[in-house]
């Protein structure tokens, strides 16, 4: 819980700072926008959190989003496939990606970084191939299915964007899975100490594969919602760098890249922090928008350094209490 307090405090600070420096932050248009982005990035961040908890990494998220984001309109518009079939194809692909990554990592014992780095190159290249590198979009059609991302739910006098519903559902499922089922416990245990987990009779390989599947399915869902939200996708850069935003959110949210720790709520707060920061950079006039990456990089670095300091202080205190 302590881990979440820190990141939550930073989020509040950034929100307060942004509110002071910009008078449109609390406007309903801007707020809805920030919430929508938070929800979309929150979903993929939760996915990657599972992989990070096992001590792995997934660099292919952005490219999976690209393939799904371009593939869906391509199937619906160019191939004239029916909506259910297109959705099935999208999630079938995500599932396959997760299984392949998981098997390569757990069974073939390849390094997660290498496996998913190749995935990053592969899926974007494939997308640019089958689309002929042409922009894919829904035009003015498919209003119904696009409601999934663009729709709004009026609640407490505020219009919550639809992706928030998906985020809540995914976050609750993920939280329950991680904290209330034996499988979540297995993931945390093997992320902490794979050998001890193995010696306790846990099928470590199967659990690692499961983590990559969860991650790929979240990426697929994210890609679907991203493209439904923005209407069109360019194969060359759709979803570019999104894996880094997701990983950063997970790390800010308390997932150690060494594995074994992380909370879903923390990850969601981490994703929110990233989006509020980006929003701040856009809204506040005197911050040049093109230095966005520099600011985000600096904030993440400050966050993890502070986290490490606190951890050491706590460990020292505990050790002296002995």
């Amino acid at each position: 819980m302590k881990k979440i307090q820190g990141i939550f405090l930073i989020l509040v600070c950034v929100i307060v700072m942004t509110s002071i420096m910009s008078d449109v932050f609390w406007g309903s248009y801007n707020l809805e926008n920030v919430l929508r982005r938070t929800a979309l990035f929150g979903i993929i961040s939760i996915g990657v959190a599972f992989v990070i908890i096992t001590g792995g990494i997934d660099l292919s998220i952005g490219s999976v989003i690209c393939l799904v984001g371009c593939g869906l309109p391509w199937l619906l518009v160019e191939q004239e496939v029916s909506v259910p079939v297109a959705l099935l194809a999208v999630f079938g692909f995500s599932l396959a990606v997760g299984l392949i990554h998981g098997i390569l990592v757990a069974k073939v014992k390849l390094q997660p970084f290498v496996v998913t780095l190749c995935g990053l190159l592969l899926y974007r290249g494939i997308t640019r191939g089958f689309t002929g590198d042409q922009s894919q979009g829904f035009g003015t059609d498919f209003k119904g299915i696009r409601e999934l991302a663009t729709g709004e739910i009026p609640l407490f006098g505020f219009n919550f964007p639809m992706p928030c519903v998906f985020l809540v559902v995914v976050a609750v499922l993920a939280g329950v899975f991680l904290n209330k089922t034996i499988y979540g416990r297995y993931l945390l245990a093997l992320g902490n100490n794979e050998e001890a987990a193995k010696f306790s009779g846990i099928d470590v390989d199967k659990m690692v594969i499961l983590a990559y599947v969860i991650c790929a399915l979240c990426s697929g869902l994210g890609g679907l919602l991203f493209v439904l939200d923005v209407n069109s996708a360019q194969p060359v850069d759709f979803g570019n760098f999104y894996e880094l935003y997701a990983i950063a959110a997970a790390v800010l949210g308390g997932c150690s890249l060494r594995g074994g720790s992380g909370t879903i709520l923390g990850v969601v707060i981490g994703a929110a922090l990233m989006q509020v920061l980006r929003n701040m950079i856009v809204l506040v006039d005197w911050i040049p928008t093109h230095i966005e990456y520099a600011i985000i990089g600096a904030v993440i670095l400050a966050g993890v350094v502070a986290d490490e300091m606190i951890k050491r202080a706590v460990a020292k205190k505990r050790a002296s209490q002995g």
Partner: peptide
Amino acid sequence: QQGLVIDM
């Protein structure tokens, strides 16, 4: 290393 998940 093998008997315990030391940080649990």
